[in-house]
Design a protein around this nucleic acid. Structure first.
Length: 288
DNA sequence: ATCATTTGACCGTT
DNA sequence: AACGGTCAAATGAT
């Protein structure tokens, strides 16, 4: 874990240093002979460095840690995550599995999850997780309903833009579509593209994905990852059971371009689960 | 002891 | 009857 922290810190310093260098270069471009293309390129690089740096810091912030370079975190005010660092207290996850089914015509079973606060706060959000038949590295996560629990009303979120930038570090695809007469969100996660790849990918972990991934309309904490984005106006209109007109144009699709996994500033953080036996579920056992 | 997961049973829909 | 979704007792983990 210490190595991860150091690595994380190094990444941040590297990014900021690079950014500074780009700014200096850009400064030198301010002569009448400099090409606008070169300036644009430098600007892009600067923005990229800043984005990456912010991603690191933002992750730390919304992960509830006081030390920006501390990997283990607590969101105690939400009563949702307990410190897993030194003491081995049980983590309270946001999702609880309540079933698993083999689905006709698919190669992998479908797992059913509901919000942990279903009974205590009548939160009816559920999600389904199923490994894709087309690409065994992809997990299809379908979200139904919105969270109404306290955690969902927390104000610990970062901005939409920052969150989206964070998501850019993952290779994922988010669709909003209709299943039956319900609108749901479908999130396809390519597990190999997950930023904790360098540390954790060998022990591919379905349970991890199932428990950690949030749709951006569900602003709640997650285990080791925070994909939640603040809901847009459009998302606000999206409610369970609310039947809206559906057409191809009605379907919203975000495709985030993959970025380097190894260089991702997120990488350092994904180690949270490494020492967590609850996350060490053999994926082959789970999905075959 | 408490909380989470597993898994067969059950139920509603088609 | 078959299927997908949920329940709940048994089991496992902390």
């Amino acid at each position: 874990m210490e190595k991860v922290k150091d690595w994380d810190k190094k990444t941040l310093i590297t990014e900021l240093t690079q950014g500074k260098e780009f700014v200096n270069k850009l400064k030198n471009q301010f002569d009448p002979l400099a090409s606008p293309e070169k300036c644009d390129l430098l600007l892009e690089k600067i923005l990229s460095s800043l984005d990456k740096s912010l991603s690191i810091l933002n992750w730390k912030v919304f992960n509830g840690t006081k030390d920006p370079f501390s990997c283990c975190s607590t969101i105690s005010d939400l009563g949702s995550l307990r410190d897993q660092g030194q003491n081995k207290k049980r983590k309270i996850l946001h999702w609880r599995k309540y079933g698993q089914k083999d689905i006709l015509g698919t190669n992998h079973p479908r797992a059913y999850y509901r919000c942990t606060h279903r009974n205590t706060q009548s939160c009816l959000a559920t999600k389904l997780v199923q490994k894709s038949d087309e690409d065994p590295l992809v997990f299809e996560v379908t979200y139904k309903g919105r969270h109404s629990c306290k955690a969902s009303q927390s104000s610990i979120f970062i901005s939409y833009e920052d969150q989206k930038a964070n998501c850019n570090k993952n290779q994922c695809q988010l669709k909003k579509q209709k299943v039956g007469n319900q609108k749901v969100e479908k999130l396809n996660i390519k597990e190999k593209a997950f930023p904790f790849t360098p540390l954790k990918c060998e022990s591919q972990n379905a349970q991890f994905f199932a428990n950690s991934i949030e749709p951006f309309t569900s602003p709640i904490e997650s285990e080791s990852m925070y994909l939640s984005l603040l809901p847009t106006q459009e998302e606000e209109e999206f409610e369970m059971g609310k039947i809206l007109q559906s057409s191809e144009s009605d379907r919203i699709e975000f495709i985030w371009t993959p970025t380097s996994v190894i260089n991702s500033p997120f990488c350092a953080d994904w180690d949270l689960s490494v020492d967590d036996p609850s996350l060490m579920v053999d994926i082959s056992e789970y999905f075959t």
